[in-house]
Design a protein around this nucleic acid. Structure first.
Length: 451
RNA sequence: GACCCUAUGGUCUAGCGGUUAGGACACCUCCCUUUCACGGAGGUAGCCCGGGUUCGAGUCCCGGUAGGGUCGCCA
């Protein structure tokens, strides 16, 4: 029998990075085994659930490329879905829950008290056979020893998570439950319920948690916790996927950078690690840089243009050759596209704003005449190419009796407003003679008034 | 507090009884480049502690300790 796995998020807020990782592992297992990946929305908490949150979940999964074989097609609870085991929103599955409660009630496995339905929980310790940690013996805790029974349906008629989760897994034919380790202790309840229904529980695989740099469970507030933020900041889904794979799973041969297609081939439950991992933004950024550098031209331009547009820089107003040439000088330099407006925005702004710290260093009185000389030299070159600009600048420096660096920094600041950026000569070539001279002119006016 | 899980450099990890404990990120130095990256060459830094078992333990067992998780009419 082919495995059937599911990702069953609660639509409260955005898609959490930990949730995305859980979805990824389920998806990988399904794809590796040729099984089925089900998406189920656990929207039983009407007060906290929002359709926007569902939107964020669907959008996030789509962005990562984690396509589901069964589940909703839109964020509407009553909207279209694919798959024969629906509905895939718990809010639409009341009839199933009611039927299952009745079944337990009629067999004395549950009882009513104070308007709620209680499950008659076993008093015996339960062994949780876990594919990642092995057999886990879960005895009752102090509190449970006092009151082992627990609520299946609240007095307001709402069934609780543990119950609906089990009912749905049962009815949707889920064979493997791959979820965060924070559910490990609760699994005893789930197993007891499956037994009450007279069916063997699915196989469990509890994956380690993603911790924040402080070492506790990653939560909202923590930097990098929202998957949507990566989309916003101009990350590539392949980089995020790759990094997420490495959190709780290891290919065991020191490979770090590997495409998802390869992970699909190599991924399996036994290689899932047992200990929690701290989220390392720097390492994700490194992977992002790697993938960004290898991007095909078209995609690089497309992502760049979009990032610039988002920052209010409309590249459509420029010649396409200028845009491409400009972006080419930024290639390999930036890691995320969110950096681009600041890094290469000067190409597309009518005027640059100067970095104050750099101004203090470069726009000093003695540099003013030097920059004037350079401007004159730049105005007279036959061609305006990186090569001639470099020769010209170096020759001018020689005539002035200074090192090239003395001119390099002020011109860069004049042209870009920044102390660092793309290769100077190439950037000037792209900018062109007119803009370059104009910007140097403006910079000369920005020098302190002293003599 | 009870119960459960975990434990290799700052971080992610390889290791599965005999290794000079390997790789990656980060950090530092140098080279390349008069920017910043990339790239190249080096470097600092690790088996939580204590008992066993064994000729031999990061590796197996037990106990501590530490970290994390769970104990709702939240999910």
């Amino acid at each position: 029998m082919k495995p059937r796995v599911r990702f069953a998020p609660s639509p409260t807020g955005y898609l959490h990075i930990g949730g995305a990782r859980t979805a990824l592992f389920n998806w990988l297992y399904a794809r590796h085994t040729g099984g089925t990946f089900v998406l189920r929305i656990e929207d039983t908490d009407a007060a906290r659930n929002t359709q926007e949150a569902v939107e964020a979940i669907l959008g996030g999964l789509r962005w990562l490329g984690l396509n589901w074989d069964e589940g909703p097609l839109t964020s509407a609870a009553t909207g279209p879905a694919k798959g024969a085991r629906g509905p895939y929103f718990q809010s639409q599955r009341r009839a199933h829950y009611e039927r299952r409660v009745e079944a337990l009630l009629s067999r004395q496995l549950a009882y009513e008290k104070d308007g709620a339905v209680w499950f008659r929980m076993t008093r015996e310790p339960i062994v949780i056979p876990d594919l990642v940690v092995g057999d886990v013996l879960r005895p009752l805790t102090d509190r449970e020893a006092l009151h082992p029974d627990w609520v299946l349906v609240r007095s307001d008629g709402q069934p609780v998570f543990h119950f609906v989760n089990v009912v749905d897994d049962l009815e949707m034919g889920i064979t493997h439950v791959i979820r965060g380790e924070d559910h490990l202790s609760n699994t005893a309840k789930h197993i007891a319920l499956f037994r009450a229904f007279g069916v063997p529980p699915p196989a469990y695989a509890h994956i380690p948690l993603i911790l924040n740099p402080e070492g506790s469970k990653m939560s909202k507030r923590d930097r990098g916790a929202s998957l949507g933020a990566y989309l916003e900041e101009g990350f590539l889904p392949e980089a995020v996927n790759n990094y997420l794979c490495l959190l709780g799973w290891s290919p065991k041969d020191n490979t770090e950078k590997l495409p998802l297609t390869e992970v699909v081939e190599r991924f399996d439950l036994p290689q899932i690690l047992r200990h929690n991992a701290k989220f390392d933004y720097e390492k994700l950024l490194w992977l992002q840089g790697e993938y960004c550098r290898e991007l095909p031209d078209d995609r690089f331009y497309e992502m760049s243009v979009r990032a610039l547009a988002k920052a209010g820089l409309d590249t459509n107003r420029f010649d396409v050759r200028y845009v491409k040439a400009a972006l080419d000088t930024c290639r390999g330099k930036i890691k995320t596209f969110g950096e681009l407006p600041d890094y290469g925005g000067f190409y597309f702004r009518p005027e640059v704003d100067y970095d104050p710290a750099a101004v203090e260093k470069c726009f000093v009185p003695e540099n003013r005449p030097r920059l004037e000389r350079l401007r004159e030299a730049f105005a007279r070159t036959d061609t305006f190419t990186a090569a001639t600009l470099e020769t010209t600048l170096k020759a001018t420096a020689g005539n002035l009796g200074v090192k090239a660096g003395v001119l390099v920094h002020p011109v860069r600041l004049a042209a870009t407003g920044r102390a660092s950026g793309p290769s100077l000569y190439h950037l000037l070539e792209v900018l062109g003679r007119e803009k370059t001279l104009e910007r140097i002119e403006r910079a000369l006016a920005a020098f302190p008034a002293t003599t």
